[in-house]
Design a protein around this nucleic acid. Structure first.
Lengths: 162, 162
DNA sequence: ATGGCTGCAAATAGTTTGCAATGAG
DNA sequence: CTCATTGCAAACTATTTGCAGCCAT
């Protein structure tokens, strides 16, 4: 049932809570949001549909552009608010890779990143690909909340690649 | 020649290239700058004097505040320009720890960081305290330019600290 | 005189916030 | 009806840029 959107162009808003997810292995978006205590509104679902479609990294700007290209009607403020909401509820993970922009990772599982400093591209590094044989103990009264590992890459001088 | 102190005549900069460093163990600042191909101007030396005084992390804002408190006359633009210049020449290292601000680390030696997510405090983690027993090979044609490791800390529930 | 560096302020970029309007229950 | 959510624009914060003046050469 197409949640009646405000008298908006009918062809644009056709997301109902599961139409985007019917064929996927993951639980429907609405449920995933609900599981994190997030009310499934139309724009939240659209945002989730784009960002949570696959493990990926997106900036607010990218996400907004994508939404607009898809014909979704979501304001910039809502994109930011929603991303922050998702992040605060643990649905997505904010990344600090480049100081100028905020990135959000739809993959909240532990993992690390390659960062191509030339292109800015971010690539996942699976947990088993990294192994710490030693880590410092956290200071008194502190505990480790997470480990962010970013391996910066640059183009190899030449022929050094493999 | 005594370096200008707070409340100083509007026009003149009386820092000469080494007045700030005569007693330190490191090579004079002017030489350090020169070694990185940076011309030692008055404000660059003042900025370097503050930031390079010890291994530490500072934001542009902090640095500017400190300079002003010290009575140095350096504009915000110059602080940013200088930090970027220093960073591009490898004199300091930019850090991406929190997406909202750029941090600069006066310690360019390889090392890692603790980041207290509550207070925002940054603490160094020495290289020998971390050991990787496995790291992924960089993709074809790429080489590792650096590794940024940030261990996020939060206050332990209680009594879990030691 | 020349060229590099600086200060200032305006311009950008990214993100947050205030508030009225809107829609779901 | 009521409340949460949204959109818009203005407000903010962090950073960069344009340009004229100054300094050392």
């Amino acid at each position: 049932m197409p949640a009646g959107r405000p008298g908006h162009p009918p062809h644009l808003q056709r997301i109902s809570r599961d139409s985007y997810n019917g064929a996927m292995t993951q639980p429907p978006l609405a449920e995933r949001l609900a599981a994190h205590g997030i009310q499934p509104t139309a724009q939240r679902l659209r945002i989730a549909a784009v960002l949570l479609a696959a493990p990926q990294h997106m900036s607010a700007e990218q996400l907004l552009a994508r939404l607009e290209a898809d014909g979704a009607r979501v304001s910039k403020a809502t994109v930011y608010n929603t991303l922050n909401l998702f992040a605060s509820r643990g649905l997505i993970r904010p990344l600090s890779v480049d100081g100028t922009r905020a990135w959000f990772d739809s993959n909240v599982e532990a993992h690390y990143h390659f960062h191509d400093v030339d292109s800015g591209a971010l690539t996942d590094v699976a947990v088993p690909d990294v192994e710490f044989s030693r880590l410092p103990p956290p200071p008194e009264g502190m505990e480790v909340a997470g480990i962010d590992l970013v391996i910066r890459l640059r183009r190899a001088p030449r022929g050094t690649g493999a």
